[in-house]
């Protein structure tokens, strides 16, 4: 049954899980526990949370290099995520992937990716499967503003539109492709308006407002399941940490700009709204925060104590047989 009112506390909890796990990962990166890249999702939590709140395990998500939030919101545990970044056998990809290859098909997490663009095509392909199989599942692609100038965006959205596929295209416009400003890289700097080019709705929402994302995704999923085709949703947001942990951050943007966006923190904003509108109490939110904190501490310990993968398995699963 579709929920008539948003699950406020569940949304708040998911955003807390993402934020606290990311902050833990940032600390772990400084300690040298993460061996490769670590692209955090801090500042963008409302988007994965608002979209994935509608998804069942059979609905599938295809993600980007900045995908920890998508994995967590889709149901990967902080323990499995942290262990993966630590390269441990207990990680969600058994230590084969790290930050950019998080897989958990059991919960519909079909992978983060080191390549910008393919997730759009894969979400369209999943939509094609679901249409052929006559299931009511949806395929969701999350991607950044950097992906919308890539050919995959054009080809994927066009095909999803002509076949009316049950796919959602969620653009997280955090305004920089690594360090290149979107306003420099795009002849048409409004992503949502590009929906018209493919004959699909293009919706612009405040990506730091979890309820706005939640409502937009709800409408898009209803449309997809009704056989009316895909929707493009542009979520305007900002990452408040560097592109990747350990990188400098002020060669291309100012401290003032980052501070201004930190003040628009999606979690704090949501908490204030919940309390102001008596949808939750300060104590309820504090309790959630504390529970999540305990879970992340436990996840960190689990990951640190997990075994390394067996080197003799380095070339298993190359083929099915």
């Amino acid at each position: 049954m579709p929920e008539t009112t948003p699950p406020y506390l569940r949304l708040y909890r998911t955003m807390q899980v993402i934020r606290q796990t990311e902050e833990q990962l940032a600390k772990s990166h400084q300690r040298g526990l993460i061996h490769g890249a670590c692209h955090t999702y801090v500042g963008q939590e409302a988007i994965a949370t608002g979209v994935c709140a509608h998804l069942r395990p059979s609905d599938v998500v295809f993600s980007t290099h900045r995908g920890h939030g998508h994995a967590l919101a889709k149901g990967v545990t902080p323990a499995a995520l942290i262990a993966e970044l630590f390269g441990r056998a207990t990680g969600c990809s058994s230590g084969r992937g790290g930050s950019m290859h998080l897989f958990s098909p059991e919960v519909g997490m079909m992978g983060t990716s080191g390549i910008v663009g393919p997730c759009i095509l894969q979400a369209a392909g999943a939509g094609y499967s679901f249409k052929l199989l006559k299931s009511d599942n949806v395929g969701v692609a999350f991607f950044g503003d950097g992906a919308v100038n890539n050919g995959a965006f054009h080809e994927g959205l066009n095909m999803a539109s002509i076949w009316k596929l049950p796919s959602l295209f969620i653009c997280e416009n955090n305004q920089f492709a690594t360090e290149v400003p979107f306003k420099y890289a795009a002849g048409n700097p409004t992503v949502a308006s590009r929906g018209a080019a493919y004959g699909m709705p293009g919706i612009e929402v405040d990506g730091n407002d979890v309820l706005a994302v939640y409502e937009a995704a709800k409408t898009a999923i209803q449309r997809a399941k009704a056989g009316e085709g895909p929707t493009l949703i542009e979520c305007l947001t900002y990452r408040t940490r560097p592109h990747s942990e350990g990188m400098g951050d002020f060669g291309y943007r100012s401290r003032e700009e980052v501070e201004a966006w930190k003040a628009r923190c999606p979690i704090r904003r949501f908490a204030e709204k919940l309390v102001a509108e008596s949808l939750a109490t300060v104590d309820e939110l504090a309790k959630i925060e504390a529970e999540v904190q305990a879970m992340v501490v436990e996840a960190q310990a689990f990951a640190e104590n997990s075994p390394w993968p067996d080197p003799s398995t380095a070339a298993t699963h190359v083929y099915a047989q």
């Binding site: 392909g125 999943a126 249409k131 080809e155």
Partner: peptide
């Protein structure tokens, strides 16, 4: 649906095939 004519966008439909294969077809 089973004999699907595509636009001329090889990258696009090969990429879609990956997503389709991952989801049961």
């Amino acid at each position: 649906e089973r004999l699907c004519d595509t636009p001329i966008c090889e990258r696009g439909f090969v990429g879609m095939a990956a997503g389709a294969a991952m989801t049961g077809t």
